[in-house]
Amino acid sequence: MFDHLDPDLTSMVVGAEESEAISACLDRLMVDTGASYIMLLDRAGQVLSWKGDAPRPEMTHLGALLAGSYASSREMARLLKEDNFRVLVQEGARERVFTETVEDRWLLVVVFDHQAHLGLVKVLAKRATQSLSGVLHVVIERNHDRRSRITGELRRAAVDTIDLIFSQDDRATESRSTDKKQWP
């Protein structure tokens, strides 16, 4: 679908307007399905948006694991000469996880308990991925128009921060203050 995607495109900016559209879509899906959590991930497992009350670190780890599962199932599909496994369902005693790809770029993840029907979640998630697909198209079009993703000033500040954080490198570690963001 995104064959025209520039291989040099190393980062993707999701603007405020698109974020709002994503948020509204996830809100609607949350209400309609009665899910516990809903997440939208990129293919690398980074969380674009989420709904529910899980603490952030848990979401980050879940995102990495789900993206790993999806990437793994995609490789399985390739070996089995399938186009793709578009949907993953994981079922536990209390909770179920439904994952569906949005044009092979993003992953929509719905975590729900046994009060919600899997069939309903499937249908509503399918509808949501269609809306999200529209948002994804806009994001990609807008990214093509951008020559640089972030300003030079922000990039320089980020590089300076990395130097500051890792400035001690492999030297003595005893005198370091743990309150400051200067780890090694």
């Binding site: 495109l9 190393t10 980062s11 993707m12 900016v13 999701v14 603007g15 405020a16 974020s19 709002e20 990129d42 293919r43 690398a44 497992g45 980074q46 674009l48 948006s49 993703r149 972030i150 980020a158």
Partner: peptide, 15 residues
């Protein structure tokens, strides 16, 4: 591909 979320003011990268 790095993700820059303008609304959440977050930059994510994968190494």
């Amino acid at each position: 591909m790095a993700l820059i979320n303008v609304a959440a003011k977050e930059i994510h990268g994968k190494i």
